[in-house]
């Protein structure tokens, strides 16, 4: 398999696991998966995958809900609660950013930790 295909499969698998996690309330699972990704994959790939799967994991339920229920009123209401009435993009961006950053943070920490603890000879 090519690297691109492996990356795609990894993105799908991590996103599916992440989605299952967040649907049972485990929003933090994105960080843990990112951590594992960071430990397993090379640094650059891990960071990209961590960010992308984190984003995908948080974005997918929003897209699904939007298709079924329409997210406009909800996003508008959340923006109003946050103090930004009539700016529904803000909670959407915040949610996606949260997923992205959780995945990225996990991947970065895993990658950096692996590099730090790995003996120099094995690198």
């Amino acid at each position: 398999m090519t690297g691109g295909r492996i990356f795609t499969i990894a993105l799908i698998v991590t996103s599916v696991i992440g989605a299952i996690g967040i649907f049972v309330g485990g929003w933090w699972i994105v960080f843990l998966i990112g951590l594992a990704v960071g430990i397993v994959l090379p640094a650059r790939a891990a960071l990209i995958l961590g960010a992308l799967f984190g984003l995908a994991t948080y974005l997918e339920p929003l897209l699904r809900d939007h298709l079924i229920y329409g997210l406009g009123p909800t996003a508008t209401s959340l923006a109003a609660i946050m103090g930004y009435p009539h700016q529904p993009a803000i909670p959407i961006v915040l949610t996606c950013a949260l997923g992205l950053l959780l995945g990225l943070a996990g991947a970065w920490l895993g990658s950096a930790g692996r590099a730090f603890f790995q003996p120099a000879s094995s690198r």
């Binding site: 309330g25 929003w27 974005l59 339920p61 809900d65 909800t74 209401s77 915040l94």
Partner: peptide, 16 residues
């Protein structure tokens, strides 16, 4: 932010 903006179980469930 984690529980509040969890798209599966957080505040977004007001859409459902």
């Amino acid at each position: 932010l984690g529980p509040a903006f969890n798209p599966g179980t957080g505040a977004w469930t007001m859409a459902f």
